[in-house]
Lab assay of single mutants.
Amino acid sequence: LKTAGVNTTDKEMEVLHLRNVSFEDAGEYTCLAGNSIGLSHHSAWLTVLEALEERPAVMTSPLYLEIIIYCTGAFLISCMVGSVIVYKMKSGTKKSDFHSQMAVHKLAKSIPLRRQVTVSADSSASMNSGVLLVRPSRLSSSGTPMLAGVSEYELPEDPRWELPRDRLVLGKPLGEGCFGQVVLAEAIGLDKDKPNRVTKVAVKMLKSDATEKDLSDLISEMEMMKMIGKHKNIINLLGACTQDGPLYVIVEYASKGNLREYLQARRPPGLEYCYNPSHNPEEQLSSKDLVSCAYQVARGMEYLASKKCIHRDLAARNVLVTEDNVMKIADFGLARDIHHIDYYKKTTNGRLPVKWMAPEALFDRIYTHQSDVWSFGVLLWEIFTLGGSPYPGVPVEELFKLLKEGHRMDKPSNCTNELYMMMRDCWHAVPSQRPTFKQLVEDLDRIVALTSNQEYLDLSMPLDQYSPSFPDTRSSTCSSGEDSVFSHEPLPEEPCLPRHPAQLANGGLKRR
């Protein structure tokens, strides 16, 4: 031991701790050491302190810390799992109470259905409401065949629209698609105040090879029609059969078919879209009749726009005509997947739907009320060519290029400059510069009032120099000039209409 001194630092001082000593042992101690050379000694003081209470040693090893962490984590996880189980049990009790009230408590799974309603004014964004509309049932219905791709499903009954099956008599087919079909039928007692009145209706139903998605689409269309409500110039929902059998959606019946066929059937002799010497046209149409058709469609679209509904496929083929020549817009409630459109795929009647699409819908897939206005301009062109085919002879690839360059279709022969300028306004490259349906209704209403009933179509000018029955994407082998976009001569082996020498072909294109 070194004694503290003047020249001794703290580091040089050493402390020796002795245990089991008493206060009597306190004092100075000297350590002597010697050898043959000499003797040396050092002294140190022993200080006795009071004994401290002994405390248990605390484990601070890493293993002990890990044990604490794992135990704490396990406890927290157990609490979370327990909370989830309690929540599930409570929510399951509430669901079972709800389904027992709906009398569908025996169901095993559900079809996820979404009601898609486009509400954005400047995009294709949609509001999806995840309302459960249908659930599968283990119960089988008697007297009705089961669908191959869709098991029997039981829908919640809506008393406002439900019609008993025994009050619906199915008739002949009116048309069909890939998985759905429409048949003519007679409904008894659609009007609650007149329970014995028989009404001719159209009934939409699924085919035998339909899938769950097809069922989902049909129900979504029905729900959309319920929500949009009734208007004179749209196909209205009349009722539905949802209980004890396949789903039947009952809508208004339009006896004169779609507008395109309606116009073609009323072309003057010699100007029909397909040469037929025995062709006997229906009643002749006046200019006022054509303007009235456009006015009614505009009114229907104005109503749909007021309900925040974007059609996305407005064309003469999707406008139906009733016995009283009332125009009714159809298929506005269809669920369309705008992100998976095949631009080169034709519709069932051979038309390319892209020829009715606005550039922003075609290139950027942006659907708005103003893109519907563009389609309405093409529909106007169809009306005043009596069912002509837009951009005849123009392949899709060429159409993309022409639209980007600002080309537009030429004025039809039997169309006034004012109406043609309306078409051109609908085809404005900037969507915000196109008229609204409200403005179109006002303009067409004024034109109808000024147009005489006696103004019949000028038969001295050809209505349509093209054969719409030909595929639109076909290139002409005998077109006049180098560019078949601006002219389209008859093919030698097929009868077509004579070309008027002083008139540019109706399907020609102009640059805006």
Rank of each mutant, 00 (worst) to 15 (best):
D166H: 03
R167S: 08
R167G: 12
L168Q: 13
V169F: 15
K172R: 10
K172N: 13
P173L: 10
G180W: 02
Q181E: 05
A185P: 01
A187V: 13
A187S: 15
A187D: 14
I188T: 08
G189W: 03
L190R: 14
D191G: 06
D193Y: 06
V198E: 07
V198M: 12
A202T: 01
M205V: 01
L206F: 02
L206M: 06
D209E: 08
D209Y: 06
D209N: 08
K213T: 12
D214H: 01
L215W: 08
S220T: 09
E221D: 15
E223V: 13
M224V: 15
I228T: 09
K230R: 14
H231Q: 10
N233D: 13
N233I: 04
I235T: 08
I235M: 07
N236T: 15
L238M: 09
A240T: 03
G245R: 05
P246L: 11
P246R: 07
V249D: 00
I250L: 05
A254V: 15
A254D: 02
K256T: 06
G257V: 01
E261D: 06
L263M: 06
A265V: 15
R266W: 04
R267G: 00
L271P: 04
Y273F: 05
Y275F: 08
S278C: 07
H279Q: 08
H279P: 05
Q284R: 06
L285I: 05
L285F: 06
S287T: 06
K288E: 03
D289H: 10
D289V: 07
L290V: 06
C293W: 02
C293S: 05
C293F: 08
Q296R: 02
R299Q: 13
E302A: 15
A305P: 01
S306Y: 15
K308E: 11
I310M: 00
I310R: 00
D313N: 01
A315E: 00
A315P: 01
A315S: 02
A316V: 01
R317K: 01
V321M: 03
T322R: 06
M327T: 06
K328M: 15
G333A: 00
G333R: 00
I338F: 02
H339Q: 13
H340N: 12
H340Q: 07
H340Y: 01
I341F: 12
D342G: 15
K345Q: 07
K346T: 15
K346Q: 15
T347I: 14
T348N: 06
T348I: 02
N349I: 07
N349T: 04
G350A: 01
R351L: 14
K355T: 02
M357I: 05
A358T: 01
E360A: 03
A361S: 13
F363C: 05
D364G: 13
I366T: 10
Y367C: 03
Y367D: 02
D372G: 01
D372V: 02
F376S: 02
F376Y: 06
G377R: 02
G377V: 14
V378G: 01
L379V: 11
L379P: 05
T385I: 04
G387A: 11
P390R: 02
V394E: 01
P395L: 11
V396M: 11
E398A: 09
L402P: 04
L402Q: 11
L403P: 02
E405Q: 06
E405D: 10
M409V: 00
D410E: 09
K411N: 04
K411E: 02
P412A: 00
N414K: 08
T416N: 05
L419P: 00
L419Q: 11
Y420H: 04
Y420D: 09
M421L: 11
M421I: 10
M422I: 11
M422V: 09
M423R: 01
R424P: 00
C426S: 00
C426F: 00
H428Q: 10
H428D: 04
P431H: 09
Q433K: 11
K438E: 10
L440R: 00
E442D: 10
L444Q: 00
R446G: 07
I447S: 14
A449T: 12
S452T: 09
S452P: 13
Q454K: 10
L457Q: 14
D458E: 06
P462A: 05
Y466F: 11
P471H: 09
R474W: 05
T477P: 10
T477R: 09
C478F: 13
S479C: 15
D483Y: 15
